[in-house]
Amino acid sequence: MADRIKPFAILSPDRDRKDGKPRRNVGRPAVIDPDATAACALRLFDEFGYDAVTMEQVAKAAGIGRKSLYRYFASKADLVWGGSLPVGSKATAMLEGKKGKDAEAAFETLREYARVGTEDLDPEVTRIRLRLTNQHRELAGYGYGFLAERGRIISEYLERSGVEQPRAAYLGAAVISVIHAAWVLWALSEDSDPSPYLEDAIGVVL
């Protein structure tokens, strides 16, 4: 398998050597695009199998050194989940430190929250990521912490908006669970647009 893995060449600076290899300035470390590195890894996992691909093979395919890879990603699980973090941060920014004027206004904000990522994420890479997390317990367990934290943020937002505890906590956990389930169901389908799945899912709890 190792011989079949070809370099994706995602280093910067730009390639300008006649042999097609990346130009490297002596004494300066390569600039690495973490999103491109994660996408490279996901495609390898999809083609060869998550368990079969090593971090060393990811580094080789990405055209970077192993130490450089580990500076950004401590494990294969980090490579799978890491690409979803910017969207999670964007969604979190909608809620942290804010409140709705009342519960219904807060629920409407959460309906918008559920759709965050539908325009930002690469559909191919997102599908691979979600299918992998659905297939491997290790990855599902690793991602639980990310989802639980987002559920807590939703709960606190609802509480600031006038929803009493423990209802706010129940809703926070339910909202993030159905959003994740909707993304997984979309990933397992052949549909191009995840929006209907997300709208149906959030309608179950709000």
Score class of each variant (00 low, 15 high):
Gly172Glu: 03
Asp51Gln: 08
Ala182Glu: 08
Gln165Phe: 09
Arg43Thr: 00
Val184Ile: 15
Arg160Phe: 11
Leu171Ala: 01
Lys6Ser: 01
Met1Gly: 00
Asp35Glu: 15
Leu11Pro: 04
Gly27Thr: 01
Arg4Ser: 01
Gly151Trp: 11
Ala181Asp: 14
Leu171Cys: 03
Gly203Leu: 15
Ile128Thr: 04
Arg111Gly: 04
Arg43Tyr: 09
Asp35Leu: 13
Ile179Glu: 03
Gly49Asn: 11
Leu79Ile: 06
Pro7Ser: 02
Lys76Val: 04
Lys18Tyr: 14
Ala168Asp: 03
Ile154Met: 03
Trp186Leu: 09
Gly65Asn: 13
Leu185Cys: 07
Asn134Cys: 06
Asp16Thr: 08
Lys90His: 03
Ala174Lys: 14
Gly27Ser: 12
Glu156Thr: 01
Ala148Phe: 12
Ser75Arg: 13
Ala74Tyr: 04
Val125Trp: 07
Ala106Thr: 00
Val184Tyr: 10
Ala30Arg: 15
Val26Asn: 10
Asp78Ile: 11
Ile128Glu: 08
Pro123Tyr: 08
Ala36Ile: 08
Val53His: 08
Phe8Glu: 02
Leu79Phe: 13
Thr54Lys: 15
Ser155His: 03
Ser161His: 00
Arg17Val: 00
Ala174Asp: 08
Pro123Ala: 05
Leu139Asn: 01
Gln165Thr: 02
Arg131Trp: 04
Leu132Asn: 06
Glu56Asn: 11
Ala105Lys: 13
Arg127Cys: 01
Arg4Asp: 10
Val58Arg: 10
Ile202Cys: 07
Thr37Asn: 01
Arg115Glu: 12
Leu198Arg: 04
Glu96Ile: 08
Arg137Leu: 15
Gly83Ala: 02
Ala169His: 07
Lys18Val: 08
His180Pro: 03
Lys67Trp: 01
Leu121Glu: 01
Ala182Tyr: 05
Ala201Glu: 08
Gly97Ser: 06
Phe73Arg: 09
Pro29Asn: 05
Glu108Arg: 14
Lys98Ser: 10
Arg111Trp: 13
Pro86Arg: 07
Ser68Thr: 10
Ser195Arg: 14
Pro13Trp: 09
Arg129Asp: 02
Tyr144Gln: 04
Gly65Gln: 13
Val53Glu: 05
Ala182Asp: 00
Met55Phe: 07
Arg115Ile: 01
Ala168Arg: 06
Thr118Gly: 06
Ala38Tyr: 09
Lys67Tyr: 09
Asp51Lys: 14
Lys18His: 10
Ser177Met: 12
Tyr113Leu: 02
Val175Arg: 07
Ala52Phe: 12
His180Tyr: 11
Asp193Trp: 04
Ser177Lys: 13
Leu171Val: 00
Ala39Arg: 13
Ile128Pro: 12
Arg131Glu: 03
Gly117Glu: 07
Val175Glu: 02
Val58Tyr: 05
Ser75Ile: 11
Lys99Asn: 04
Asp35His: 15
Ser84Pro: 02
Leu85Thr: 02
Val125Thr: 15
Tyr170Pro: 05
Ala77Gln: 09
Gly203Ala: 12
Ala182Pro: 02
